[in-house]
């Protein structure tokens, strides 16, 4: 199995290269020719691949000429489309970083290109592979939790600082709202099955990192679904930057018959490092990225979770774009 990672713009590129490198039977190369957007000091391109001991292709053409069975697109959010279209044109399955795109137009074009070329388009939502989420899903789909009334979710981190384009609306499509709404929106897209988002109310501010970036750094997003459920998502970059942990993802599901809480990343040993002068956190939970990559490359485990498809990626993107319009206008906005 040959896998190419296209672009190292996204912070997840390093993790994918590491995981793929140690998967038996997987050959991996990386390619990152388009580094003009990198901020000073950011390691990109060949140097980035060499640091990780991964083979490097100087151009995307060269990467495709290598004959990959699948590619992973890790470019800036606004630059997903050309790489996905390139993969489609070469007939190669593609896993695209989230969010699918920054505009619905781009997302629809990507879906069309992959559909016409007969290639698989998947979107990188690793949290759906969380065993904690599986337990929530089991409780809801079995009916044990009853009808879902409300969901309260939070996906907080600090503003990504090793890749500064995340806070550049041109390349990222926005800030925290674009970055962090989609993970929980994807969980609910899966949890609610055929149910669809009806409208979105979002409020944002940039009081966090004020003066440092123009993008919104805090946001609360309320999504109403046609199954009667309502969810509010805190997508803020509100986790302290110098905290020893990265943040997390939590979900509370209030059903008619049960109240459920999950934390996708709380399985860790906590302590304090005198040597580092800060808190110590030793995660021991499942590696969600690895589970996602395996499902993408080899298919889902028996009865297990599959990767999000392009259609799902487009639905969560539409929630975000409606959220931006809502934040601008101060009213709930229908999901297109």
């Amino acid at each position: 199995m040959k896998v190419a990672v296209l672009s190292f713009a996204h912070v997840h590129a390093a993790g994918y290269l590491r995981l793929l490198s140690r998967m038996p039977g997987v050959e991996v190369i990386g390619s990152d020719p388009d580094t003009a957007s990198a901020a000073p000091g950011e390691v990109r391109g060949r140097a980035f691949a060499e640091e990780r001991g991964v083979a490097y292709a100087a151009t995307y053409e060269e990467a495709f000429a290598w004959g990959p069975d699948a590619v992973i697109v890790c470019s800036e959010n606004a630059r997903h489309r050309p790489l996905v279209e390139l993969a489609a044109s070469r007939g190669v399955d593609v896993l695209c970083e989230k969010p699918l795109a920054t505009t619905v137009e781009d997302g629809e074009a990507m879906l069309a290109a992959c559909r016409e070329a007969g290639v698989r388009l998947a979107v990188a939502f690793p949290v759906r592979f969380s065993p904690a989420y599986a337990a929530v899903k089991a409780a809801v789909s079995s009916g044990d939790a009853g009808r879902v009334l409300t969901v309260s979710g939070a996906n907080n981190g600090s503003m990504p600082s090793v890749r500064r384009w995340f806070a550049d609306p041109e390349l990222a499509g926005g800030g925290a709202l674009m970055d962090h709404t989609v993970h929980i929106a994807d969980l609910l897209d899966d949890l609610f099955g055929e149910a669809r988002a009806v409208d979105v109310y979002a409020q944002t501010n940039n009081r966090m990192y004020a003066g440092e970036v123009d993008a919104e750094t805090s946001g609360l997003v309320t999504v109403t679904y046609d199954n009667g459920s309502v969810a509010t998502i805190d997508c803020s970059w509100s986790h302290p930057r110098s905290h020893h942990s990265w943040g997390g993802l939590e979900l509370t599901v209030v059903g008619e018959r049960a109240t459920l809480e999950m934390d996708a990343f709380d399985q860790a040993v906590h302590g304090f490092s005198e040597r580092r002068g800060q808190g110590l956190e030793l995660p021991f939970g499942a590696d969600l990225d690895e589970l996602m990559l395996r499902a993408f490359l080899y298919g889902p485990a028996e009865g297990g979770m599959d990767v999000a498809d392009g259609e799902g990626g487009l639905r969560t993107l539409k929630i975000v774009t409606a959220g931006y319009e809502s934040a601008r206008r101060g009213v709930p906005v229908a999901v297109g």
Binding site: S152, Y201, Q203, T204, N205, R207, V230, D234
Partner: peptide, 18 residues
């Protein structure tokens, strides 16, 4: 019988509360 509600407040200062 369960009842659950969610509210988002926007403060004059720009702060948002859930």
């Amino acid at each position: 019988e369960v009842v659950s509600a969610t509210a988002v407040l926007t403060h004059a200062s720009g702060v948002i509360s859930h």
